[in-house]
Amino acid sequence: MKLDFVLNNKRVSINVKGGLRLIDLLREQLDLVGTKEGCGKGECGACTVLLDGKPVCSCLILASQVRNREVTTIEGLSIEGEMHPAQEAFTETGAVQCGFCSPGLLLSTVALLNENPEPSREQIRRALSGNLCRCTGYEKIFEAVELASRRINGLSVQNDKV
C-alpha cells in the first residue's frame, strides 16, 4: 500500500506493507537506524519516536497507523547539522554512556521541554520513566534536561564542574 506521512519535517510517500511495524519501516526500509530496538514490547523505550510531537514506542505501532501524521526520529532533531539544545546538553553533562538508549531519551526529553519548558526534577523523572537506561543511573540525564531547559529559556548557565 501507499503510505503518506511527514517524517522529520519532510513529506514522505512510500510503498510499504501496511502491517510493517513503524520501527522496521524506519530502520530497514528508510535506513534511519538511530531508532533502536531494545525489547520489541514497549518496555524499554529505546525505540521512542515522536508521533505528532508525542513520544510513542515505534515497536508497537504499525506503519499504517502513521498515515497522514507527523513522525520525528532522532535523525530529525538536528536542524541543518545544528544540534538541538537537548543533544548538546546530553554530551556536556555526561548523560551518554553506551548511548543505545540516548536517542529514545532525547526524544522524550524534547517532547517534555516542548510541553513544559521548565520542568521540575519530579516532572523530568516522570517524563523519562518510559526510557530504561542501565548505564548512567539517570543522574546526569536529569542534569542534561535541566541544562537544556535553562538554555532554551535563555537563562544563564553555569557549569561549575568544568
Binding site: L32, V33, K36, M83, Q87, F90, T91, E92
Partner: peptide, 22 residues
C-alpha cells in the same frame, strides 16, 4: 579534567553504529 566524550556527539545524533545497524 572533565572533558566530554568524543563519541557522545555521534551517539546523540543516532549515528553510533551498533551491531544491528549495519
Amino acid at each position: 579534567k572533565r572533558v566530554q566524550r568524543p563519541e557522545s556527539i555521534t551517539r546523540v545524533k543516532g549515528g553510533g553504529l551498533f551491531a544491528d545497524d549495519s
